[in-house]
């Protein structure tokens, strides 16, 4: 019999079992095919790969990823809506040896938390921000986000978003790239295998930057929300690939090495 050895298995920095509803401790709370699950996996791989589990502090937001602390066996804080970069600032300044990650959705970061992210980036805080852009408010059932695509129907733009009515989608990477302080800014996506593997490398880079003290590092991940978009996961992934990347160009906007 040929012998096989594992090369990719559940990352160490995930808990063995999750402290959530009794019968669901072996599964995440995310919907089938949710982009957050994939971003969690890529992030966990990066933490393992860099050997920083014991000094990582994850700041989770309000939104579907509010329960990130159920899964990551690292230091965890869950904060008020939009405030993750402000809290991450405090944590990093008081514990400079820690690797501090602000994990946020697009409603959290680009709407209620637009001030916090802008000023943390402008101050060049030595943190890593992971911005999961699914173009919608997932947790609350599908209200329009600042990043909702033009024409996209949501519960608060039932006829489809229009520039005249609701404004244009906000391009957060481009906005932050107008500031001088950020060290690293890149937009990646989960639309196909190639994009997922690029996202894996870029997330690792954004953490490595912090290990090296390079400066404020920001990764936007275009991700699917199959449930609220009303699509099957594979169809939603195609929407990321074909529609979201049309509005939000993938690429690096800043890469200043420490």
């Amino acid at each position: 019999m040929p012998e096989y050895a594992p090369v990719h298995a559940k990352p160490h920095c995930f808990y063995e079992r999750y402290e959530r509803k009794a019968e669901l401790q072996h599964q995440t709370h995310y919907c089938p095919g949710c982009g957050h699950g994939i971003v969690h996996k890529l992030l966990a791989q990066a933490i393992d790969g860099l050997g920083i589990q014991d000094r990582t502090i994850l700041v989770s937001p309000v939104g579907c990823s509010v329960f990130a602390y159920y899964y990551f066996d690292v230091g965890n804080i869950q904060v008020a809506h939009g405030r993750a970069p402000a809290v991450a600032t405090a944590v990093k300044r008081s514990r400079p040896e820690s690797i501090v990650i602000s994990y946020q959705g697009d409603g959290d970061l680009a709407a209620i938390g637009s001030a916090e992210i802008l000023h943390a980036a402008n101050r060049g805080e030595l943190i890593t921000v992971i911005f999961v852009n699914n173009a919608i408010y997932g947790m609350t059932g599908g209200q329009m986000a600042p990043t909702t695509l033009l024409g996209m129907k949501t519960t608060t733009s039932p006829q489809g978003r229009t520039a005249a009515g609701e404004g244009f989608p906000i391009h957060v990477c481009e906005l932050l790239a107008s500031l001088e302080a950020p060290a690293f800014i890149e937009r990646v996506a989960l639309g196909n295998n190639q994009q997922i593997m690029r996202a894996a490398r870029v997330l690792r880079r954004a953490l490595e930057n912090q290990v090296k003290g390079a400066g404020f590092s920001f990764v936007e991940v275009l991700a699917q929300c199959p449930t609220v978009w009303g699509m099957q996961p594979v169809e939603a992934q195609k929407f990321v690939r074909e529609k979201m990347t049309g509005t939000f160009a993938l690429g690096n906007f800043r890469d200043r090495r420490g």
Partner: peptide
């Protein structure tokens, strides 16, 4: 690639021939 594409932390384990 299936390991990276799967949203569940322990959904898939990939093995290679030793």
């Amino acid at each position: 690639i299936c390991f990276f594409a799967c949203p569940e932390p322990g959904g898939i384990t990939v093995l290679r021939l030793a």
